[in-house]
Design a protein around this nucleic acid. Structure first.
Lengths: 184, 184
DNA sequence: CTAAGCGTTCAGAATATTCTAAACACAGCG
DNA sequence: CGCTGTGTTTAGAATATTCTGAACGCTTAG
């Protein structure tokens, strides 16, 4: 591996490790493959990056799931070979859907569950103070739902190639709990 | 903490832990504060979530940096109090800039460094094969740069409230290294 | 049918991260 | 002044993650 290649592998590895999507090693594997004209065998990747085959095997599976790497069969050889994919837009769609949107849905699900628990609880507590608290909580949940629903819609539009504006998001600002005096 | 509150805290904790932005505990802290009418002291948060004060202290610092929580001073008390912020758009801008965009810049920096190393190397190797390889690598780096530059611009536009379309991104598809025969 | 080559799985080692409790620093009160 | 109640720092414990090498199963060459 020459100098440029080494720098690229290290750089993408570092970027990947802070991405929240790929591991450091996955970044390195992709970088190695991306600058390669011919597909590489698992063993070649492992030795080039000084990692065990098992580790490369596991990490490369993730890269394939993100559509960042393709497994291809090379005629003369029994080994699996791999090459970098270059349709980055496809990868981005995948990340948007499977990671960001999934997290958004998790939040929405939590809100829904909390609202249900709150409603069931309404049959119990009776005091005026308790009703006021419930109303406050309900309002807060509604505010968060509004925002995350908008985010969900924005991601959906973006991945479908439609233009996206932030204006819905910008205007979702529930009232603060108190008038804060910021501290120095 | 009542049932609805508990569900919300657990749900946001789970969501946060897979977000790549917040830790599990940060998700829980925010959830706790968000459903609270009055600001809470550090100690209250720690005892409610069954964590040490030091741990809460460290995690809450991150929440403040993301503008998800505000530190406020309560007249009667010497303790620091905290309340949830509700300007989620602001938070999103921050995350876009400080996390996504930063990763994008890391990739662009890696590309630039690699290109420089490649150019310096050009003064050395002389064979036709070596020149062809260098040309290929150069093309690959250029392709990646194109895409990530577009992503950078898109993030920039989005955080400034301008509409964003994916069309630039969709069309950045460098040629594959080989014509792959996909394996079953 | 056997043996070799290959990728994957798995138990445990190596490493990184998260968390705690004790020590510390700093403020306000007596 | 010193004492008390704060938040922060820090060293190390607890936990989670990543990595390795051996074992396994599958395929194919001989």
């Amino acid at each position: 591996m020459d100098a440029a290649h080494g720098i690229f592998v290290d750089g993408l590895g570092a970027a990947a490790s802070t991405s929240g999507v790929l591991s450091l090693l996955q970044g390195r594997i992709f970088a190695l493959l991306y600058l390669q004209q011919a597909p590489l065998a698992l063993e070649d990747i492992a030795s080039e990056l000084q990692q065990s085959k098992s580790n490369v095997s596991i990490n490369i599976r993730g890269l394939i799931e993100w559509h960042l790497v393709r497994r291809i069969s090379v005629p003369g050889s029994r080994k699996d070979h791999y090459e970098a994919a270059t349709n980055f837009w496809r990868v981005m769609q995948e990340v948007m859907e499977r990671r960001f949107r999934w997290t958004v849905r998790q939040v929405l699900a939590a809100i829904t569950e909390s609202e249900r628990a709150l409603a069931e609880d309404g049959g119990r507590g009776r005091g005026a103070a308790q009703r006021a608290t419930a109303a406050f909580v309900s309002g807060r949940l509604a505010g968060l739902r509004l925002f995350f629903t908008a985010v969900d819609a924005a991601i959906s539009a973006f991945t479908q190639g439609k233009p996206v504006t932030a204006d819905t998001l910008q205007n979702v600002i529930p009232l603060a709990a108190s008038v804060p005096r910021q501290r120095g």
